[in-house]
Nucleic acid binder design. Structure first.
Lengths: 212, 212
DNA sequence: CTTTTTAGCGAACAACTGTACGCCGAATTT
DNA sequence: AAATTCGGCGTACAGTTGTTCGCTAAAAAG
């Protein structure tokens, strides 16, 4: 019951995960990693890999899950920081950019496999993104009094823009990133403004006789 | 001077291009195509491939260029249709969705290699997208009297949203696509509204004493 | 007609790949 | 103390890859 065996197993499992992460780079996609290389980097025999994962895919999905988890945790922190006051948009952009800076490889993995050739990967990543959207839509609906439909659309547009810009920021020197962030904030503000403007026209055309 | 030789060469060049295209699918990325498979599909010896392209990369870049060209041509057609009246946004969305429907493989190639591992691919595709943005920004500035900065930002946001939604539409049954298109149109309208709203606040805070 | 150019071929090579199989030895269970 | 579980290893195999080299035959150039 000491679990000395389980402990060791978990250790080399981590070694495999880290080996995979360490081999990812702008020039090397996860989908082109070989089981043998990863095993070599983790200092185990190729055949031992199978004691931990059935596939390279299974390893990759683990990375996706862990990355998504990290992102969601950051979002919660963001909501807390927000209680102290400050622009939601600016804070969210900050958090997001920090995330991709500190998790370049994982974010690249998310981007690449989001449009990759494995349906399982695509679905797993789409699920993570959907999480992101839903939380934002809820916030817009509850805290900003937007009707559900409009909140959903605004969140959708914002998340799309944010991820797309994140992809561009990924291989940008830190110096250029500040500029991009200002653009990002403006674009997101644009979307927010547009949403409330649309809300106004809808409620106007719907119940113009009803002031309350 | 008959050029019977040049003619034949062009023919098998096309055969190679078509072979590559025909092997692309949701399950097969361009970056994982093998020179040998492509040559086999084109009915030439593997070694003959080099008479036409130095690399598989060179072949891929050709596909990117051709895809970009097609897209730009459609844009011009779109601008013509626009002269007859109608919603710019709706028409543009129509055209875009048509494009990805009729060029699934190419669009998938663009998406995948946009965040792929070859810098040359990334740059080539970024260039195509930049074309798209610039043309839209010019239109917004010239025809819609938006200040250049705001036009640039609106175009940027719109193109990002459009491409992102395009990626989702790619593996969607045609039945679900209609719904997605309506969402797209609303999101783009949101962005457009937001841009003019921001314009109003800026000019108000800048020169409130200047009516003209 | 003679010479040069060139698209295409086949053989060969070394480098990898994923994975099936059976064995070992230490941790765990009985 | 004996039996079982199981993480890890080495060997082995068949398959595929990109690319080099020298050759052929037909088109083009002289």
């Amino acid at each position: 019951m000491t679990g000395i065996r389980a402990k060791q197993k978990e250790k080399t499992r981590r070694a495999l995960i880290n080996a995979a992460l360490s081999q990812l780079s702008p020039q090397t996609a996860f989908s082109s990693l070989s089981l043998r290389e990863v095993a070599r980097e983790a200092n185990i025999a190729p055949t031992s890999f199978y004691r931990h994962f059935q596939n390279m895919d299974e390893l990759g999905l683990t990375l996706v899950d862990e990355g998504g988890l990290t992102l969601r945790q950051l979002l919660r922190q963001g909501r807390q920081r927000l209680a102290d006051g400050g622009s939601v948009i600016r804070i969210s952009v900050d958090i997001f950019m920090d995330f991709i800076s500190n998790n370049r490889s994982v974010f690249r993995l998310l981007l690449q496999e989001h449009s990759g050739t494995s349906k399982e990967f695509r679905l797993a990543i789409a699920r993570e993104i959907q999480h992101f959207k839903s939380e934002l839509a809820d916030y817009l609906h509850n805290e900003r009094q937007l009707p559900e439909d409009l909140a959903r659309l605004q969140a959708d547009a914002m998340v799309r823009v944010m991820f797309s810009i994140g992809a561009d920021a990924l291989d940008l020197p830190a110096s250029d990133r500040a500029e991009l962030m200002e653009d990002t904030i403006l674009e997101l503000r644009m979307i927010a403004r547009g949403a409330t403007a649309l809300q106004a026209s809808f409620s106007a055309s719907k119940g113009s006789s009803n002031t309350k």
